[in-house]
């Protein structure tokens, strides 16, 4: 039950992904063909609001609900991993038209074939985990 707040945040995120059509294969094609501003507008304003929020949280020393200090840590920069993994994900993103958030939202929307893509994504994570120590990062 202590996680119910994350359920609500997830529900809001899912609704936004559907209503903004970010879950649409067509919108991703439009983005990678540079034929509309929509996706760039969505991602660009999301980053601006996210960055401004973090600035304000730090400036005002806001604490989390549990009273802990908020100090988000940037992920480490793995030069090969970030770029090579990024390229592989980009190839998959343009194929399926969905990144992980939209995969979940599409399943909920009732697009049953997306179960195949989500299952394959989980398999992809499994294979990465098994090969991790053999890959350059």
């Amino acid at each position: 039950m202590k996680h119910i707040k994350f359920l609500f945040i997830g529900i809001l995120f899912g609704i936004i992904l559907v209503k903004s059509e970010v879950i649409s294969w067509f919108r991703i094609q439009e983005m990678f063909r540079f034929q509309a501003f929509h996706m760039y507008g969505v991602i660009g304003t999301a980053v601006m609001v996210g960055a401004l929020s973090i600035f304000l949280i730090k400036k005002l020393n806001l604490k989390s609900l549990d009273g802990s200090i908020i100090n988000p840590k940037p992920k480490p920069f793995n030069k090969i991993g970030n770029v090579a993994g990024g390229i592989l994900f980009g190839l998959g993103w343009a194929l399926t038209g969905a990144c992980p958030g939209p995969l979940y939202a599409l399943v909920g929307s009732g697009y049953s074939t997306i179960f195949v893509a989500l299952g394959s994504a989980i398999l992809g994570a499994l294979v990465y985990g098994i090969l991790k120590n053999k890959l350059p990062h």
């Binding site: 991602i43 993994g85 994900f89 190839l91 893509a117 394959s120 994504a121 398999l123």
Partner: peptide, 26 residues
């Protein structure tokens, strides 16, 4: 599209340690 595409999404985001939400937005 479905099997290879999904696989690349899972493998790639873990190799890159993040996806559109974790890297692009956060």
């Amino acid at each position: 599209v479905l099997v290879l595409g999904g696989f690349l999404v899972g493998f790639g985001t873990r190799y890159a340690n993040g996806c559109t939400s974790g890297h692009a937005i956060m």
